[in-house]
């Protein structure tokens, strides 16, 4: 089932500068989709449209069969699509972790007992229970983003969008956040859309969509996308390091299949060094 269907979507903040110029994309239920593309290619705008923060100028967009073109539907969409933004400092409303996590369900008018259950669930899923009473400002970037995810889980959305949520984190923080998100995708079957500049995060995704100049120019498996050198060059993207190495080897006449991660690459290299029997 498609949870998101977008057809020929157009959007601009001001008339002279269209941001999205006829974008089409479908997202399947339970899918882990990565959206990559240059800075200012329209990725964040796409996220805001899917989440119902803004509504399109023309084209179609339905999220879980709700028509996002109608402004009165936007609130309903926000209940179903959670979004984690880039700056961990700018999405927390309350000073204390617990108080922040319950902000969403409080807005929805959920009864107290149920908010309590949702709070426990969200803290547990994101591994943030140990600092539930801490000041948000005392946490590390990775911890803050996990709290932000907890705050969204408490709304119980079906779709989770990460809008460059790891870009301000150190490698450890990134790892923390991505492992939580991967678990949610696997265990809770949550549909995840991640917008990122870190190609290493894209490698494990089910599917990658490349956004360039306001349109999706290609979707495919990470391998399909990263093997398309012309596409990468045209859209300013780069393959992950392991694939860069296999590309460099191929240029030197060493035939290695293009590999996305270091383990596979190592195995391929080991194969090459073994003498044919």
């Amino acid at each position: 089932m498609n949870v998101i269907e977008i057809k020929d979507l157009q959007f601009s903040y001001d008339e002279h500068q269209p941001v999205l110029k006829g974008l089409s994309l479908t997202v399947k239920e339970g899918e882990f989709l990565a959206v990559i593309g240059r800075n200012a290619s329209g990725k964040s705008t796409l996220a805001r449209l899917i989440n119902g923060l803004i509504s399109p100028l023309s084209g179609e967009i339905t999220v879980l069969n709700i028509d996002a073109r109608k402004k009165e539907n936007l609130y309903e969409i926000r209940k179903n699509v959670g979004i984690v933004f880039q700056n961990p400092d700018n999405q927390m409303v309350a000073s204390i972790v617990e108080d922040d996590v319950v902000f969403g369900p409080e807005n929805l008018g959920i009864p107290r007992e149920e908010i309590g259950e949702r709070l426990e669930f969200s803290l547990k899923e994101t591994g943030t229970a140990e600092f539930r009473e801490s000041m948000a400002s005392k946490l590390s970037g990775g911890q803050k983003q996990r709290v932000a995810i907890a705050g969204i889980l408490a709304i119980k959305p079906k779709i989770l969008i990460l809008d460059e949520s790891t870009s301000m984190l150190d490698p450890r923080g990134r790892e923390e956040v991505m492992s939580v998100v991967k678990k949610l995708n696997r265990k809770e079957k949550m549909t995840v859309i991640t917008i990122t500049h870190y190609m290493d995060e894209v490698v494990d995704c089910d599917r990658v969509a490349v956004l360039n100049d306001g349109v999706i120019v290609k979707t495919g498996t990470p391998k399909e996308i990263f093997s398309d050198e012309k596409l990468l060059e045209a859209t300013g993207m780069e393959p992950p390091v392991s694939m860069k190495i296999s590309l460099a080897l191929n240029k030197l006449g060493v035939n290695t299949p293009l590999t996305l991660d270091k383990q596979t690459l190592l195995n391929e290299l080991l194969k090459l060094t073994k003498k044919p029997e």
Binding site: R48, L53, K79, I83, V93, G104, L108, P111, L119, I155
Partner: peptide
């Protein structure tokens, strides 16, 4: 922050509960 609050379904004090 405004966007983040909207995204988390903030809708004023209307029908709001308190945990």
């Amino acid at each position: 922050l405004g966007d983040a609050m909207d995204a988390r379904c903030y809708n004023g004090s209307k029908n709001r509960t308190k945990y």
